[in-house]
Nucleic acid binder design. Sequence first.
DNA 1: ATGCATGAGGC
DNA 2: CCTCATGCATA
Length: 239
Amino acid sequence: MMSMNSKQPHFAMHPTLPEHKYPSLHSSSEAIRRACLPTPPLQSNLFASLDETLLARAEALAAVDIAVSQGKSHPFKPDATYHTMNSVPCTSTSTVPLAIKLGVTQADVGSALANLKIPGVGSLSQSTICRFESLTLSHNNMIALKPILQAWLEEAEGAQREKMNKPELFNGGEKKRKRTSIAAPEKRSLEAYFAVQPRPSSEKIAAIAEKLDLKKNVVRVWFCNQRQKQKRMKFSATY
DNA sequence: ATGCATGAGGC
DNA sequence: CCTCATGCATA
């Protein structure tokens, strides 16, 4: 009951796939090979739309590159595909769309990936699974993870339930990382600076840090994260 | 679901 | 010091 278009998911042949980060994708693992085959007929809904979106994103990316190289502004319109994707099976919290029928959580999916025994592929966090599902990872990241999650889905469907626990590694000391919280006023200032200069020099960063009374490293990281976010936002932006 | 952070690899 | 993939902690 979808479209009759038969777009071929040709991502398996993506020319510049991963790099050092995904050695397994270059190995001749059977699992990987199977996973890279065109989306199988079964649970095709999610992956079919994923393929469409990835393709749309690739085109959008190309459009941006061309436009930028020609000194023009973004030539395309609000990205409808993005909303389509998010509306696919996106749910609220604990139960993941991908796994909803299997009754497992995003964290479950992430840790279960390690059981696939795919060379070079370990577990992933709830955060990453969540971001994969909401398409908020980078384009390449999406393409790299897709075959892995697809392999998991095949596995999960065949071999029923298997609750796995996350072996909380050794806990030397209670050194919980603390998350800095940048107040709204400061955040607004940072955004203003970012709009003018997304990549301030070390000196600028120091100046900004002092003016806002924040640690220099906090400001530096904020800009790094902002740049990463902006790249992903090219897709969801509503111009 | 998302903000701030870490670490690897690269220049 | 940057980018990129990824995750802990938290709202």
